[in-house]
Write a protein that binds this DNA or RNA. Structure first.
Length: 298
DNA sequence: TGCCAGGCCAAAT
DNA sequence: ATTTGGCATGGC
């Protein structure tokens, strides 16, 4: 059984009820959706689990939710906000039909069915993935929580802190960020925060750009190369064709292609192989490989 | 101890 | 155009 299926990595509890709000405000049918898989797939790092209840901040909106079978119970956050953040409108049957037919991709689909590509606010997604380079998921979480708790605005009625606005981070010095465990990443996050604050990087205006141009814009920011840019394209801008090639995807694509390749060659290979929803395929393969340790042909 | 982690960047080929 | 080495930190 995988870690995702066992669950409870974050503060394991047993069947506890929501404290501040006894009844869900909204109950929505979500057949074919998996809240746990989605939140544990390495797209976000600041979620918290209390028994069956999950809490996640989207910007300064606290989403408190529980999934019981096909029912999604919403304790805080609007139904529209939850539906948008968890991308409940994505055409999953088309996406699944587009998956490659090989055994490995189908095994990933079988394991991860129900996982969604989130729609994250652009700034917090960009900032978080700038800190992700050469870091394991658990440590990205640590850094994210440290930055939030030290510099982010508290969210009323919770112990959460929103991700600090660009202006807030731009006002800090590099040492303050290094004290959050960022190491050499501190300078990059600071530089990007200052570029956004100065208006040199308008993350919202950039939404209108086609994917290739948007990627080029993102790559002008310090600490943002092709991989991080693709993460932001996929997780924040909804560009479902974007493929972040990290060490896991590189291993998988290399095993599929069966020859030594540069990261760029692996991305080109994956674009051809994974199809129109390549970002979805990539995320399922990533989670499958990371939790089972298996690669194609093993 | 040594190795690796959802990489980026500038310098050297 | 492509490859290489340095960069901080923490977990196993």
């Amino acid at each position: 059984m995988s870690k995702a299926q066992r669950g409870g990595r974050v503060s394991p509890g047993r069947g506890s009820e929501p404290k501040s709000s006894d009844k869900p405000k909204v109950l929505r049918k979500v057949p074919g959706f998996s809240l746990q898989l989605t939140l544990e797939s390495g797209q976000v790092f600041h979620m918290e689990q209390d028994g069956e209840i999950w809490k996640i901040l989207c910007g300064s909106d606290l989403l408190t939710i529980r999934q019981i079978g096909d029912d999604l119970e919403i304790f805080s956050g609007s139904e529209a906000g939850v539906g948008c953040y968890f991308a409940l409108d994505h055409p999953m049957s088309s996406i699944y039909a587009s998956f490659p037919a090989d055994a490995y991709s189908q095994a990933a689909l079988s394991q991860c069915r129900g996982m969604r590509i989130l729609r994250q606010p652009a700034w917090e997604c960009l900032a978080t993935f700038i800190t992700s380079s050469m870091k394991q998921v658990a440590h990205i979480r640590q850094m994210s929580l440290a930055i939030r708790s030290r510099f982010g605005n508290p969210v009323m009625g919770s112990a959460f802190h929103a991700y600090p606005e660009p202006a807030r981070l731009a006002s800090l010095d590099e040492m303050a960020l290094r004290e959050c465990g960022l190491g050499f990443r501190a300078k990059n996050l600071l530089g990007t925060a200052r570029a956004v604050e100065a208006g040199d990087a308008d993350l919202e205006a950039w939404r209108a750009l086609p994917t290739d141009e948007l990627r080029e814009k993102l790559c002008t920011l310090p600490g943002v190369g092709r991989k991080v840019a693709n993460c932001v394209l996929l997780f924040a801008y909804g560009r479902l064709e974007a493929i972040p090639v990290d060490v896991w995807i590189a291993r998988i694509a290399t095993a599929m292609r069966k020859r030594k390749s540069s990261p760029r060659q692996l991305e080109e290979f994956s674009i051809r192989r994974f199809g129109p929803y390549a970002g979805y395929v990539q995320q399922y393969l990533f989670h499958h490989a990371r939790t089972t340790g298996k690669l194609p042909g093993q």
